[in-house]
Design a protein around this nucleic acid. Sequence first.
DNA 1: CTCAATTCGAGAATCGATTATCGTATTTTG
DNA 2: CAAAATACGATAATCGATTCTCGAATTGAG
Lengths: 135, 135
Amino acid sequence: MKVKASYSTRQRAVILDILRQAGQPLTAQDIHERAMQNHAGIGLATVYRTLKTFISQGDIAQVEIPGASPCYEPTDRGHHHHFVCQHCRQVFDLQGCVHDLHDLAPQDFQVERHEIVLYGVCPDCGRDESAHTDD
Amino acid sequence: MKVKASYSTRQRAVILDILRQAGQPLTAQDIHERAMQNHAGIGLATVYRTLKTFISQGDIAQVEIPGASPCYEPTDRGHHHHFVCQHCRQVFDLQGCVHDLHDLAPQDFQVERHEIVLYGVCPDCGRDESAHTDD
DNA sequence: CTCAATTCGAGAATCGATTATCGTATTTTG
DNA sequence: CAAAATACGATAATCGATTCTCGAATTGAG
């Protein structure tokens, strides 16, 4: 059973690059839009196909955030968590973690991993907010 | 603008009761199934309609968990978090919380709330697992 | 360069969750 | 109990995310 060959294409390079440059998780839509801007002509289907390929190769991970669309990010960023801006819906990476986290579960639960998501207002939107006082 | 009246119906009582008895967040499907068992004849549409009503009244809250279907739970349980069993996909309530959590975000982010989700194996599935050693 | 393998693009199709539709049934009010 | 307001049930429709389809284009080996 030989592993199916994998061609290196412009599209794949672009998508991986976008994700690496981003510094924050992006949705498939985000990636698609940026790909269209930077280098015209990448179909949404291709974005999904490519993400899938990279995910199975372990280069990219899907990030699911309650209240946000599924995002994708490179796997080389180590353990970290996320912040979701309730204004612009963007997802940001956070550094660090907290301990004692697994103690939240009773003894008879085996905890294998955890997710932490902070919600609030990002710096950009915070600036707007103080000006508008809207929402 | 008067607030729309709200009739008290068998269906609403049943749904709220199911949710209160459950002790853990349930999906709309879960609720529907249990409602069918306990008291025949509650449509899925009614489940959603009723959840929506209760949510707007503040009696029920929707719980979104990455990797799980949207769940619903009574709001009278105070601040708590959740555990998702990677085997049976059930969502459990956890008591307690951790501090220093909001420090994860840089100063210029306004943190308003947070979510913590632990993933692992629940007691029931852990028992099975040790017997089968499968998965 | 040539050919076979692989990938692409655009749009249709699918999927799970949720909402809308509409005729019927139930709850309130008096 | 009668009438009006509200809710129900079954199913079709919708929604966002993702996958599939298939003819055209690109890539890698020789």
